[in-house]
């Protein structure tokens, strides 16, 4: 094991070891950083930008989930600027697609909803990007509703990296990006989907749900997936 070295986060000196990410260190030390695309055990992509932190000496903001610790780092995670941007990111996510909590399966069990509460979003200042999207209910057990998707790509990663099926991928660019099944086929016709339901379990919002759930009653077994990944890593 490599020797620990100290870094400074929000004025606190913390002992860390090489290879850790700043997010891991923060989570282990009770420093609250909001996350959205990050999911424990899945490869990080740094896409949602919610975990942005300030690293002294670097002009741009860096995502904590992909930033590796290094000696002499001085990191700030809660500056006014960062808080403002976190709020704007959540606002941006809300206005991007149709996020109406009252009719959503994930109401009360939704990471986006929790985030809005946490960063203090109570209304939207930006105009809606109204883009009515399709809902794919062709799969026998699950439904994907693109209107609620926030493009965190957790489902894509869990399907490719944990299940190994790689059923999901992404099509298009800009605000037109969509999650697709196989070669943009209806999910029900997918040859690769194993119907394992891992994607449903990791989805932070109500974009993926099983047909047995109804409004506000979705069950997400996130801890089970985390546990599975952890145990597999130990075996490897």
């Amino acid at each position: 094991m490599k020797p620990p070295f100290p870094i400074e986060i929000d004025g606190k000196v913390i002992q860390v070891t090489e290879g850790q990410t700043v997010l891991e260190v923060c989570q282990a030390n009770g420093i609250d950083i909001p996350v959205m695309c990050h999911f424990e055990g899945l490869p990080d992509v740094g896409a949602c930008r919610l975990c942005l932190v300030e690293l002294k000496g670097v002009p741009k903001l860096l995502p904590a989930c992909t930033l590796r610790v290094a000696p002499n780092q001085v990191i700030n995670t809660q500056t006014e600027k960062i808080k403002k941007y976190r709020k704007m990111i959540v606002e941006a996510l809300f206005c991007e697609r149709d996020h109406v909590c009252a009719i959503c399966v994930a109401n009360g069990n939704c990471e986006l909803q929790d985030l809005a509460k946490k960063v203090g979003v109570d209304h939207m200042r930006f105009p809606d990007i109204l883009q009515p999207l399709e809902l794919d209910a062709s799969h026998p057990y699950f439904v994907i509703d693109h209107n609620r998707c926030i493009m965190c790509t957790r489902c894509v990663r869990v399907c490719a990296e944990v299940e190994g099926a790689h059923n999901f991928d992404i099509k298009n660019r800009s605000y037109k990006v969509r999650i697709i099944s196989d070669f943009n086929q209806p999910w029900g016709e997918s040859k690769t989907c194993t119907s394992c339901g891992k994607c449903v379990a990791v989805c932070p919002v109500g974009a993926l749900w099983s047909k047995s759930s109804y409004q506000g009653k979705i069950e997400k077994k996130k801890e089970a997936i985390c546990d599975l990944i952890r145990k597999r890593k130990v075996n490897v």
Binding site: V45, G46, A47, C48, R49, Y85, M88, I89, A92, L93, C95, E96, F126, P127, I129, I150, M151, I170, N172, R173, S174, Y175, K176, V177
Partner: peptide
């Protein structure tokens, strides 16, 4: 806006908002 890859939220949503 058209050329944004759509990966990160600020660019994906922000460019569309600014264009609108």
């Amino acid at each position: 806006m058209d050329e944004s890859c759509g990966k990160c939220v600020p660019c994906r949503v922000g460019t569309k908002q600014m264009f609108d």
